[in-house]
């Protein structure tokens, strides 16, 4: 499938997606454009598509799941803590005819087994993360905090050492994060996490990423503010994995909330990929 075909298919997902977005959950619908990039990249790396199981952590209204299903992933599990969002996601999926056995015309059609689950990540706000905390969105502010962040890292000691030594994911007990799923239970985990811009949410994107890394056996795709890039890549390294910036782009956050003064807020975001295990299908994959 070509990128533009994917984009146009995703553009037909019904909008508006959130009628009453929940501010503390930082709910923004992922745009078709952004979705098409993540899906296209993952498809080229053979992380999603036929034969692959995908988990969408914090699925919201399901854009990333819809993208994963459109390109023929064999199963998609949507996990979100908000019942309203999950039911919109379900409607959107149905509207698109995804995961619907009625839409299957012949045996050769790729079918996606779609499943939904309500679960909430356990997040302890991180006071030590200056970079992602704050009261509002906006890119200027985000950048400033990014700098403050790297300063505080420097003050911590060794240069190049991870800012916060976190336990490698193998040691993250599955009972620790509130997500009721076994480690390495899917091939690929994709997530568009809250960026942690609301009070009490500081560092929540990293909490999402860490759980995504725990759940995937192959690859993780996630969006993060570009201003936190350096810190993020070091954190991933401290978990024992390699992270790479697949693309840098603008996240166009529409004015959904009163505290947004401008119509739209452009935030610089990175699409990050964490490689868990690149073995081709049929090879030995690590099973925890």
């Amino acid at each position: 499938m070509k990128l533009k075909h994917l984009q146009s298919a995703l553009s037909s997902v019904p909008t508006p997606q959130f009628t009453e977005p929940n501010i503390t959950l930082e709910q923004y619908a992922t745009s078709p454009e952004l979705t098409s990039y993540i899906i296209y990249a993952a498809l080229q790396n053979e992380d999603i598509g036929y034969g692959k199981s995908v988990l969408d952590l914090g699925s919201g209204t399901g854009m990333l799941s819809i993208g994963s299903a459109i390109v023929g992933s064999s199963s998609v599990l949507l996990v979100d803590c908000d019942e309203g969002a999950l039911s919109i996601a379900k409607e959107n999926m149905n509207e698109m005819g995804l995961g619907d056995v009625e839409e299957v015309e012949d045996d050769d059609d790729e079918f996606c087994q779609v499943e939904y689950m309500l679960a909430k990540l356990k997040h302890t706000p991180r006071k030590d993360i200056v970079g992602t905390g704050g009261r509002g969105g906006g890119k200027g502010r985000g950048r400033g905090k990014g700098r403050a962040n790297s300063r505080s890292n420097g003050g911590r000691g060794n240069k190049g050492a991870p800012a916060l030594p976190l336990q490698p994911p193998q040691k993250i007990g599955p009972l620790d994060d509130g997500i009721p799923l076994a480690s390495n239970c899917v091939d690929t985990c994709i997530t568009n996490p809250p960026f942690g811009t609301k009070p009490g949410n500081a560092g929540i994107d990293i909490t999402f990423l860490r759980t995504a890394v725990r759940l995937a056996r192959r690859s993780v795709y996630s969006f993060h503010k570009s201003s936190t890039r350096e810190y993020l890549l070091k954190t991933i390294e401290s978990w024992g994995y390699q992270g790479e910036v697949v693309a840098a782009m603008k996240f166009d956050i529409p004015k959904l909330y009163k505290f947004h003064s401008k119509d739209n807020v452009d935030v610089d975001v990175d699409l990050i990929r964490v490689i868990i295990n690149e073995e081709k299908e049929g090879g030995e994959e690590s099973q925890e």
Partner: peptide
């Protein structure tokens, strides 16, 4: 809920030892 999903699930409620 499919039994495939159940296969990976475990309870994470406080006080759980194994959970599945």
């Amino acid at each position: 809920m499919r039994l495939l999903t159940h296969n990976y699930m475990q309870s994470t409620v406080k006080g759980t030892e194994k959970g599945y």
